[in-house]
Design a protein around this nucleic acid. Structure first.
Lengths: 216, 216
DNA sequence: CGGCATCCTCTTTGATACTG
DNA sequence: CAGTATCAAAGAGGATGCCG
């Protein structure tokens, strides 16, 4: 990107991460942690492959992303955020929160990846029963599932299936998002096309206080 | 901007404010409040006038900016943020904070406007003596001065001169920024080229606890 | 295959000139 | 002052090719 050439913290930030696709690339790396080029490509529907390659180089040069070359046991290079990159998380969260009000019902021709639900999930879920045994919820909306684990007071969200999920949730994206975030009660989510199998307590345990409020 | 076409809150936010120059336009409106087209143009060195005009239209269409047409007493149309626009402030602050670590010494060929100091000032200053009478500090680094007022526990920062400043601060941008933010003690700032006239207590009153720490 | 680099077209930007 | 008009240059998007 062309620099704004302004002595201003915001302008400096935008010199580095203001380019098209950059924040979405960082979103992917925040959600997935270290991953391959092709994982990024899949999580960024619409990006041209040359553009992704170029952006990754810029981000590496800027010290936001680190590229680990493929060595012995690993077949392909891996990308991950540096500390500086991870420190963008609060800003990205703030933006996502602002954008969430622009998120209406899902019109089927928008791209959707299940793991994107990790962002609202990390923001709004917590383990409300730290002393009970760990439980896992698997969420399926797109191709690859997402697993959410409540264990010892913390919530772990990561892409990929859960080994032995205590509950499984699936349905249309906007219903799942609203349900996880606590804007929609389970009954209404089911009425809206969601399916929940397994122990209902798993979902309740993850939700701070939103469920009782929204259940009305 | 071309939409990312992704059902994701962050992508939706970027569909609206991800375009080049947009966040800087919003920065200007956050600092200045309601203002004229030329004010924006002056506060955004490097922007092309057609681009500013186009962005303002997009932002108006998106409900982020409101344009008030010139009526009776006012000679020219004015622009200001809507509530939705103002609600971007936390996200912009978060980004600016991230960018501040990229802000080194001021190399003279970067553009600088004095009123940009309002962002770090609002973030880091507070009125530490709410019960004393209001005091005003005037900051001069660029063309137009900035006035910072501590009154009754709150700090007001706005572009423009102060009526009767209790103190006046001037000097090179990076020195003033570091001083205001508390990263630099007054003595060191003066050694670095800053000038401070008036009551030293004014500056101390504005700074939470940073000065004692950084004074060492 | 996964991980890019090239080539080409189309859109956006930047610079400047011009008008009500 | 507040923009619009014009045009060249840069960047994005898409397809495809190359290489381990």
């Amino acid at each position: 990107m062309r620099s704004y050439g302004q002595y201003c913290a915001l302008a400096k930030a935008l010199d580095v991460v203001g380019d098209r696709w950059i924040l979405l690339i960082i979103r992917e790396l925040l959600i997935r942690g270290r991953c391959r080029y092709v994982d990024l490509l899949n999580g960024l529907p619409g990006i041209a492959t040359n553009l992704l390659a170029g952006r990754l180089k810029e981000l590496e040069a800027a010290g936001v992303v680190r590229r680990e070359a493929a060595t012995a046991p690993v077949a392909t290079p891996l990308y991950e955020l540096t500390d500086r990159g991870r420190s963008l998380e609060p800003a990205i969260r703030a933006f996502a929160q602002w954008g969430s009000q622009l998120l209406g019902a899902w019109n089927g021709d928008e791209a959707f990846c299940n793991h994107w639900l990790a962002m609202p999930a990390r923001l709004h879920l917590s383990d409300t029963a730290p002393d009970e045994r760990p439980v896992t919820l698997e969420v399926r909306a797109g191709a690859e599932p997402l697993s959410i684990e409540a264990t010892g007071g913390t919530v772990q969200v990561r892409p990929g299936p859960a080994k032995a999920p205590d509950a499984v949730l699936s349905g249309p994206p906007h219903i799942l998002a609203a349900l996880l975030v606590g804007r929609l009660a389970l009954a209404k989510a089911v009425a809206g096309g969601a399916t929940y199998t397994g122990d209902p307590a798993v979902l309740r345990r993850l939700q701070p206080e939103a469920v009782p409020a929204a259940a009305a």
